[in-house]
Each structure stands twice: as C-alpha cells, then as structure tokens.
Design a protein around this nucleic acid. Structure first.
Length: 272
DNA sequence: AGCTATGTTAGATC
DNA sequence: TGATCTAACATAGC
C-alpha cells in the first residue's frame, strides 16, 4: 500500500536487487501504464543500467548510467516490485518487466493499473512541474507550519495534498492526526503552535516507525490506530465492537472526510 | 453480486 | 483567478 514508507521499502529493494545490470528489453503489457511512449522508453533504456535511486514522497526515481535518463515510478494504490529469475516465476500482475542481461527480471506489479512509469530528465524540474512539496521525512517544523497555515480546508485533506507535504496517504494521515491529538476536520489555519509541533513530531514518528517495520502494519506499536483498520475485514456492523482507542478505550469513530474513509478517537481528537 | 480500496486529477463549484 | 470539493479512473478482493 504505497504511501511514503512503502515506496521507501521498494526503493531499498530496487537498490539492492537491480543495480548495475544491463537492460536487454522492456516488456509492457498495457501502454496506458506509461507516461512516456514505449518506443522512446525502450530506446532510452536498452543497454543502460540502473545506477541508483532517489525518492520524494511517493515518487521513486531510478537513475541510469546516462544522467539524462531517469525512470520515474509511481505505485498508485497497489503497485509493487519483484525481482525474479525464471519467466516461470513471473509474478502475477507484472505488467511492466525490465529484463536484464544476466537473465533476471525486475517486475513492476500493477494489479489495478493505477501505477505509472515514465522517463524524466531532471528530477527537480519534474517535482516542480508536478507541484510535489517537501518530503514528509525532511520537512522542518517551520516550513510545515507555514505551508499548513495558509490553507483553510480541513487538516486531513491538507495533509493528503502532495503539494503541501509529500508522502502521506489516507492511512498515515489518520495515524498522524491520532498521534497528534488533532481532529481531522479542524481547519488547517486554526492549528495552534502546540498542535503544529505535535503534528510535525507525529509525521516523523509515524513515517519512521512504518519504515522501521518495513510497512508491516501488524508489527506496529500497540498504541497505533492502524490496528483498528487492520482488523476491519468483516462486515462493518460485525466488527465495530472491537474498534476502541488504544489509549482511552473510547469507541473509534468512522466517517468520511475529504471523500476518504477516516478513523479517529472522538474523545481525544477534538477541535480546539 | 455489490461494495470498498492504499492515489491522483480533471472538471465543477465556491 | 485561486482554492476547494467531487467524482471518476481500472481492477481485485472480500
């Protein structure tokens, strides 16, 4: 589920599996997944090698031995990477495959086709053009405060806005707001200095924790809200009974904010 | 069978 | 114009 931590895990995975191997061929099942036309992509990458990676928010960039050829990957809601050898092991949904000269393959798994791959020649220019803000792990308290205070919308959709701070998705924003004791519908421009400090700290805590546990939710600390969601695999009425705040045991509320399903503790996350 | 989904964005609306 | 909001996208899984 590719929010910033999952993309960071995929970056590390690609870095340890797929560098310094000449690319023989690129297989693309559905051209709609490409943001660069296939002929251009194939021509630019054939014979090249991946040499390193960069990440900003949910965007992964793969450098090659040609400084002007950089692959951009976005994992949408369900994208993943898998490095494999035999074509018999080709994973399901590997709709884009980078075939290396050594016989190994890097599959870009696109189960729901919300994923995108394309070429970029300048990362900074790309980020500017796409209005991607500072990475959630790198943003300072002052910059976060300045960017949030100029918005009047609810804090939750503001945190989901990649131009404000990059990398936070639906689950993580809920977790961050829970850890910071902030109601998802508090207006962004009304956050106090104390709340901003809590928010900044919570963003770092949640992202760091998720990366440390390799984004495996069930391993997260017990005081994380994420567990409320993880168990939500049976009909809502059935499961509501065990959704309680891990800190105060109040029943967790479920609503829709900014068009997304939202969980929060109605007792501890109040609008001030 | 019908509903929901982790993300992004075009187009509508304020 | 600019900010904000909504719906749609394509598909799998439950």
């Amino acid at each position: 589920m590719p929010e910033l931590p999952e993309v960071e895990i995929r970056r590390q995975y690609l870095e340890t599996s797929s560098l310094h191997q000449p690319i023989n061929h690129i297989e693309v099942e559905d051209k709609k997944l490409l943001t660069t036309d296939y002929a251009t992509l194939a021509q630019a990458l054939t014979g090249r090698q991946f040499t390193g990676t960069r990440r900003t928010g949910k965007n992964l960039f793969v450098l090659t031995d040609d400084p002007a050829v950089i692959v951009h990957m976005h994992f949408g809601m369900t994208g993943d990477l898998e490095y494999y050898h035999s074509s018999l092991d080709r994973p399901r949904f590997a709709r884009i495959v980078f075939e290396f000269a050594n016989g190994f393959n890097l599959g870009f798994l696109c189960p729901r086709k919300f994923e995108r791959v394309g070429l970029v020649d300048d990362i900074d220019a790309f980020l500017l053009r796409k209005k991607i803000g500072p990475d959630g792990l790198a943003i300072s308290l002052d910059e976060l405060t300045e960017r949030i205070r100029r918005k009047k919308a609810f804090i939750k959709p503001v945190l989901l806005d990649q131009s404000v701070v990059a990398g936070l998705g639906n689950w993580i924003v809920d977790e961050v707001l829970f850890q910071a004791f902030i109601h998802p519908e508090q207006r962004a421009d009304t956050l106090t200095d104390i709340q901003m400090r809590q928010l900044h700290q919570a963003i770092y805590l949640v992202l760091e924790t998720a990366i440390r546990y390799e984004a495996t939710y069930r391993d997260f600390p017990n005081n994380f809200l994420i567990h409320v969601r993880e168990w939500d695999d049976s009909p809502y009425d059935d499961v509501e009974a065990h959704k309680f705040c891990p800190r105060c045991q109040t029943r967790i509320e479920r609503s829709v904010v900014g068009g997304r399903t939202t969980f929060f503790c109605p007792k501890e996350q109040v609008i001030s």
